[in-house]
Design a protein around this nucleic acid. Structure first.
Lengths: 202, 202
DNA sequence: GTCTATAGACGGATAGAC
DNA sequence: GTCTATCCGTCTATAGAC
């Protein structure tokens, strides 16, 4: 593997290879992300893949890691907003990453390293989301024992995942009713105040 | 394609090929379900695949159809039970089919025919589930305008999907709390009575 | 850092014998 | 209905030149 701690040399073939892998995987599935295909899209020869990544699995893992960190950064940045619940909903219903994350889940089912990586990533996401929900519920004086924040976190992301998965195949049955319901629910838990600043309206 | 309306001839190679495809797809992913591999597992030569199915895609579609009909039958049978909400939860948290359905979703993203088939299947499932929830809510005198049955249906299946997907990679964070919460919720909506027989306890 | 050339396995699909 | 033989393309990965 080439220089990592030093200044990025040359044209960034490594980065282009990773970007190409992600794109092909999202467009045509993990099986289509072969050394030849990703190299072609990156504008290099297929053998260069093995210069940067010992095996194709190593390439996949690298792409997943980077992609996961990017997603976490997006999430952390967004959740500083006034309305964490709504932001959580919007992030999780964003269909741009649906296909890709489905591919990762499928890959994780039969590639141990991918599964392990996906697990730690999912745990970090859950931690961030649950922290945000905790802040909101606490600000409204909700009993966190009776209504654990992690539960609302899962209910919200679960509903969002259904919407994304179904939209991916053109199914929209019940989505509008769900969106309306969630919107009403979220509206009951606004957070435009500092967490320690009030007692909770209802 | 061979005799369909007549009596099942011979050894059932066609059925074995379909079963083998489903198994390999679940165990090793759709990319591993090649004509040679499924034929080997079914105990026939790979060329026989093309006798029964013009292309590999046709084989996949056939397997998905049959598998979908089986799932629908299971669901319909289970939902005649006393406690439809609990049955719905149990069916959807069954992790035996998680890997397989993830593969189908991934395949659906880049094979139009699979996506179309998955869509009609998902719609039929949603219809059955929503009908069951409607029955329960109506029996308890819930205002179906304020709380649409399809919404509870999606919330329940969404939470279940999260549990299944995460369990598949060994993640269990918050699952116990979610199960407890759902269990309590379901307990509030028992249905051991005939739908038209009472007014609702509260 | 990027290339050419190549090994060796496996893929979908067809022709035609039995 | 099931097989043998085969075409031809693609795959991961390596050796070694520049």
């Amino acid at each position: 593997m080439p220089a990592a701690g030093k200044a990025r040399a040359s044209t960034g073939a490594r980065e282009r290879l990773m970007a190409a892998t992600e794109q092909i995987m999202g467009d045509e599935g993990y099986a289509a992300a072969t050394s030849r295909r990703v190299a072609e899209l990156a504008g290099v020869k297929s053998t260069l893949v093995y210069y940067y990544f010992p095996t194709m699995d190593d390439l996949f893992v690298a792409v997943l890691c980077e992609s996961g960190e990017r997603a976490l950064a997006r999430m952390r940045a967004a959740l500083t907003a006034d309305d964490p619940l709504r932001v959580l909903w919007l992030i999780n219903t964003d269909t741009r990453y649906t296909r890709l994350s489905t591919e990762w889940m499928a890959l994780a089912n039969h590639r141990k390293v991918i599964g392990a990586e996906l697990k730690v990533f999912a745990e970090r996401v859950r931690d961030i989301e649950t922290a945000a929900v905790t802040m909101v519920l606490r600000a409204h004086g909700v009993d966190l024992t009776e209504f654990p924040p992690v539960v609302m976190s899962i209910l919200l992301t679960g509903a969002a995942r259904i919407i994304c998965n179904e939209s991916a195949v053109g199914m929209v049955q019940g989505h509008e009713q769900l969106r309306t319901f969630i919107e009403q629910f979220i509206a009951h838990y606004p957070l435009a105040v500092r967490p320690a600043d009030q007692g909770g309206p209802g």
